[in-house]
Computed example of a mutant assay.
Amino acid sequence: MPTKAAVRKTVIQRLTALSPADKVNQTQQLISALVSHPWWQAATTIGMTMSTSIELDTRPLIAQALAAGKTVTVPRTLPKRQMAFVALGPGVTFEPSTFGVDEPIGGQEITAEDHDLIIVPGLGFADDGNRLGFGAGYYDRYLAHYAGHTISLALAVQRFHQVVWPLTPFDIKIEEIISMQEDHHG
C-alpha cells in the first residue's frame, strides 16, 4: 500500500493537470448537489474552508450560503494543531496562514456544538467515508469533538472506490461524500 504522502502527491498531480473548464464544471455540479442536500437546507451554521487554488473553489458556495441567510464559519489555526471556526461578517479580515490559506483575523468564534454542518476539505475521499487530508491533522482533531453532520465534495480525481492509503486510529470518517463519478479507476 502506498504511503499517505505518495497518494497525496498523486492527487495533487491529478488536480494540477485538471483543466480549468473541467474543474469549474465539476465544481458547479458538486455545489448544486450539496445545496439541494437536506442537511445543507436545514443547516443554519455551516463551517467550510477558504480554498487554495488547487482545491475545489469554495467561494461560490460561501456566497450561496450567505445569500440564503446562513451563518458561514471558516477556520483559523491555533497552536498545537488546533483550530477554531470564525463567523464571516463585518470586522473580519483575512491574511494568509503558513499553509497559504486565507485565515480570518478578528470575528466571533463559533463552537463545534453550534455548527449544524461542516464541509470538510481533503485531497482524497474513499466511497466508505475515509478521507485523506493534507497531513497536519487539524480536521481530525476538530471532528473528534464535533457531533454535527459532515460532508465532503470530491472532484473526480479525488475519488477512490476504496482506501488506498494507510489508516490510523485518529482518522475521522466523513458522514457523506458527494463526488463526481470518475472515468479511471484509481
Rank of each mutant, 00 (worst) to 15 (best):
Q13R: 11
R14N: 13
L15A: 09
T16S: 14
A17M: 09
L18F: 11
D22F: 12
N25T: 12
Q28G: 13
Q28W: 07
S32W: 08
H37L: 06
W39M: 08
W39L: 12
Q41V: 14
I46K: 00
G47E: 10
T49M: 10
M50A: 11
S51W: 00
S51G: 02
S51D: 03
E55V: 02
E55Y: 04
L56T: 02
D57N: 09
R59V: 06
P60L: 04
A65M: 10
G69F: 06
T71C: 07
T73E: 05
V74F: 11
P75N: 09
P75D: 13
T77R: 05
P79Q: 08
M83S: 09
A84P: 00
F85S: 07
V86Y: 05
G89A: 04
P90K: 11
V92P: 03
V92K: 03
V92Q: 02
T98M: 09
G100T: 06
V101M: 15
D102C: 11
D102W: 14
G106K: 01
Q108M: 14
E109P: 00
A112I: 05
A112F: 02
A112Y: 05
E113Q: 15
E113P: 00
I119N: 03
V120E: 15
P121C: 10
G122T: 05
G124R: 06
F125S: 01
